[in-house]
Simulated assay, not measured.
Amino acid sequence: MTREEQLVFCKKCKHRYLDFDRGILCKITKKEADFEDECSFYVHDPESSIVPKITNLIKPNRQRAKWAEYLIWAILALSIFSLISSYLQHDLLLKIQEGFPVSDHQLEMNDLREGIVGILTIILYVISVITFIRWFRRAYFNLHSRSANPTYDEGWAAGAWFVPILNLFRPYKIMEELDEKMSYLIKQRTEEEVKSNKPLIGAWWALWILGGIIGKYIAKAGLKAETLEEYISSTNADMLGIIFDIPLSLLAIFVIRTVSKKEERLVHLEAQDSNKSNTEVE
């Protein structure tokens, strides 16, 4: 009997359980299937169509991934406009420093433009964070539904972002685990080697942490600015921060897209297995 034929029985047995490293094991022997013609421990599970059961527990997440991407693209577009706005402010401040005449209207319009950009950035950023976390938590919930032995409770996919110290590493660990375990589950079904996104996720997280540090520095510099020279330095820091945000946004989009593609592929494979199992039952 081949490994695939053995697994047909294992998937319908009450004693099955999933080990992330080794696959489907027997609760009694703690081993993979090794029987020839029949298993003496086999007990049929009437609810066993394991795949249909899993499929029913999986919640749709594709739309959430798309909205998370769209909002980051919107932030990226606003960042480019903000860079232009900061450059115009920098140019205006240099004119004042060099003694060129600048009207009150020009100053008012500059402050209005910068104020609008700032408010839009905050609003869009908050909405984007909420959308991203909703997608992230749903993906981790689905991993739990697949019984892939996740390391953390699914609530940490949202909560870890708001806990000091923990937010420096746990969201990264969960994202890495999502990518790794979905790759494993795909390989279990297709026997294909699935490309790891670990370097991409690592680069995204490194930029995220670095961006947070730079953002705090820029915010402090802006609040402390009183002289013309300090305003010029603060504006320069703003432009550098915006330039830094561009690759961070692109990496975030790529991470969402690549992890979401694995999730969608897994959903497709599970649906195929579900149809196959239903056909066999009929």
Rank of each mutant, 00 (worst) to 15 (best):
P52R: 13
I209H: 13
L112A: 13
S128V: 06
V281L: 14
K14T: 01
A225F: 08
P60G: 08
I84T: 06
Q6W: 03
I123W: 14
G241S: 13
W205Y: 14
M1W: 15
D91H: 15
R138L: 08
A237P: 00
L250M: 06
W161L: 03
L107A: 12
L124G: 04
H144L: 04
L88I: 09
S40E: 06
L93V: 08
F9K: 07
G212E: 07
G159H: 03
A271M: 03
G215I: 04
L185M: 11
E38T: 15
K53L: 08
W205H: 10
L228Q: 12
K31V: 07
Q272I: 14
Y184G: 00
F35K: 06
E192A: 02
V163Q: 06
Y217I: 15
A158M: 09
S233I: 14
L248V: 00
K66Q: 03
S234R: 05
L25S: 08
A206W: 05
V163P: 03
H44L: 06
W67H: 04
I116T: 10
P164G: 11
H105S: 07
T151H: 14
L178S: 03
C10I: 01
V8S: 05
E98S: 15
V267S: 02
E114W: 10
Y87L: 09
Y17R: 05
L250P: 00
T121P: 00
G211H: 10
G115V: 02
R16H: 14
S79Q: 08
S85E: 14
T2A: 01
R134W: 04
K173C: 00
T227L: 11
E36K: 10
K262A: 12
C10W: 00
I243G: 11
Y172V: 00
V259T: 12
I214E: 12
L166E: 05
P171D: 11
I75Q: 07
F169S: 02
K30R: 09
M182R: 01
I80N: 03
L18R: 04
S274E: 11
S82E: 01
A74H: 02
S86R: 07
A65K: 00
L92R: 15
D179C: 13
L251W: 00
K216T: 06
S86T: 13
L168F: 15
A160S: 15
R3Q: 09
F162C: 00
I116Y: 09
E108D: 05
Y125G: 02
W135A: 10
L200M: 11
L143I: 03
L178A: 05
E69L: 06
I96S: 12
I122A: 09
D273I: 00
L71E: 05
R64K: 10
Y184H: 01
V8H: 05
L143K: 02
L92F: 15
I72V: 08
L88H: 12
A33G: 01
G159A: 12
E176I: 09
W204H: 05
R22V: 03
A157P: 15
L94S: 15
S86C: 12
P164T: 05
A157I: 04
N167Y: 02
L178G: 02
G155F: 02
T131A: 11
A271F: 01
Q6P: 00
K31W: 10
A203S: 10
F100G: 02
P60N: 04
D179E: 11
V8A: 07
V8F: 06
F41W: 12
P164R: 13
A221R: 13
